[in-house]
Amino acid sequence: MQAINWQRPWLQGWQETGERVARRAAAGMPLAQALNAEAGAPVRFVPQDELPAELAYEDYIFRSRQCPTRDNLHDFFNGLCWLRFPQTKQRLNQLQAAQIEAQGILPTRGPVRDALTLFDENAALLSAPQPLWDALLAKDWPTLFIKLRPLWAQARLYLFGHALLEKLVEPRKPITAHVYRAPAAINSVADLDAWVAQDLSAEKLASKPFAPLPVLGVPGWWPDNENFSFYDDSFVFRPQRPLS
């Protein structure tokens, strides 16, 4: 696995567990075993080859409470997500399994499974004052990042998606999260995990309750955005499409 700079702002809260797991893996321990050495996950991590050919990945996890794991960075962060957000990960898996039970495995996932996968891979959770959320929904980037910049001191952005975390090991300006709104009265990651797990439903996810956010634009997350010309890149900070 690649070296990870745990001092990045978006990895706050992930470092202690992540470093322990990474050390075990670097010493030659299979990643599944390195993750199982930590407490807190509602699943047991197993090597990828234990996934039966006849079962879908999410269905196997639901039935067996075992998570097939490859020795790579993507599954490293997936394992960390199971450890840090156990209730949310379990809820996503339950919803995936319910969709598979109802519809079987189709050539395309359908809107609910697409949204579940998008959340699992690329979601971030934002607790923020209403004006920030309004500007984000409007893709009003100058207001969001410049005019309202002081309000970000009252916001909390928690990355969740394991593919998102993997991409940010090598930060690039276009990396964009799909943001899901969290309430302001969240005092800990455990409280956030419990709230999201309770809030998620197939109906809500089918409505695509996400807002795109280029994460390196977040104040304090990337030195280059202290120069406000950073936000002039319309290929990254795309304007709202006009209503037809």
Rank of each mutant, 00 (worst) to 15 (best):
Q2L: 08
N5P: 15
Q7W: 03
Q7P: 11
Q7Y: 06
Q7K: 09
R8W: 10
P9K: 02
L11Q: 01
W14I: 07
Q15D: 09
T17V: 09
R20N: 06
A22C: 14
R23A: 14
R24K: 10
A26Y: 04
A26H: 11
A27D: 15
G28D: 06
L31N: 03
L35Q: 02
N36G: 07
E38A: 04
P42C: 11
V43P: 00
V43H: 03
V43K: 03
V43R: 04
R44Q: 13
Q48K: 12
D49P: 02
D49E: 14
L51S: 00
L51M: 01
L55C: 06
E58W: 00
D59L: 13
I61T: 06
I61G: 02
F62C: 11
F62G: 04
S64D: 12
D71Y: 06
F76Y: 11
G79A: 10
W82G: 00
W82H: 01
L83A: 03
P86E: 06
P86C: 06
Q87M: 09
T88Q: 08
Q90L: 15
Q90A: 13
L95P: 09
L95V: 04
A97P: 12
A98Q: 06
E101A: 15
A102L: 06
L106C: 12
G110Q: 09
R113E: 08
L116S: 02
T117E: 10
A123N: 03
A124L: 12
L125N: 01
L126E: 05
S127G: 10
S127L: 07
A128W: 11
P129T: 05
Q130W: 15
P131Y: 15
P131L: 10
L137H: 07
D140V: 01
D140M: 04
T143V: 07
F145H: 07
F145G: 00
F145I: 00
L148Q: 14
A153P: 15
A153S: 14
Q154S: 12
L157E: 03
L157R: 03
Y158G: 00
G161D: 02
H162F: 07
A163P: 14
E166H: 08
K167G: 04
V169A: 06
E170L: 13
R172H: 14
K173E: 08
P174T: 02
I175F: 09
H178C: 13
V179F: 14
P183A: 10
P183Q: 02
I186Q: 01
A194V: 05
L200Y: 11
L200V: 07
L200S: 08
S201F: 12
L205D: 03
A206V: 04
A206C: 08
S207P: 05
K208Y: 09
F210D: 00
A211N: 04
A211C: 08
P212A: 04
L213A: 06
V218D: 12
G220R: 03
W221G: 00
W222A: 03
W222Y: 12
P223G: 05
D224G: 11
E226R: 11
N227F: 13
F228T: 09
F235M: 10
V236S: 06
P239K: 07
P239S: 10
Q240N: 09
P242R: 07
L243G: 11
S244Y: 02
